[in-house]
Simulated assay, not measured.
Amino acid sequence: MVFHLDRDHVELNQLLKLMGLCDSGGAGKAMVASGAVAVNGRQELRKTCKIHAGDRVEVDGVVIQVRAAG
Rank of each mutant, 00 (worst) to 15 (best):
Arg56Lys: 15
Ala36Thr: 01
Ser34Asp: 08
Gly20Lys: 01
Cys49Asp: 00
Val63Cys: 11
Leu16His: 11
Lys50Cys: 06
Gln43Glu: 15
Gln43Cys: 09
Arg42Asn: 13
Cys49Leu: 09
Ala30Lys: 15
His52Phe: 10
Cys49Asn: 11
Asp55Cys: 09
Asn13Met: 13
Asn40His: 11
Gly26Asn: 08
Ala30Glu: 14
Val59Ala: 02
Gly28Leu: 01
Gly20Gln: 02
Arg56Cys: 15
Ala30Val: 12
Cys49Trp: 09
Ile51Ala: 12
Val39Asp: 09
Gly54Met: 09
Gly54Tyr: 09
Cys49His: 15
Lys47Ser: 15
Lys47Leu: 06
Lys17Ile: 02
Cys22Trp: 07
Lys47Asn: 10
Met31Val: 01
Gly54Gln: 02
Gln14Val: 13
Glu44Ser: 03
Glu58Tyr: 00
Ala27His: 13
Val37Met: 04
Gly61Gln: 06
Leu15Ser: 09
Gly26Trp: 06
His52Thr: 00
Gly20Met: 06
Ala30Met: 14
Thr48Met: 03
Leu15Met: 07
Glu58Gly: 00
Ile51Arg: 09
Ser24Pro: 09
Lys29Glu: 12
Lys29Tyr: 06
Ala38Trp: 07
Gly20Cys: 05
Gly28Gln: 02
Arg46Thr: 14
Ala33Ser: 14
Leu45Lys: 13
Leu18Ile: 01
His52Asp: 01
Gly41Tyr: 13
Lys29Phe: 06
Val63Ser: 11
Asp60Cys: 00
Lys50Asp: 02
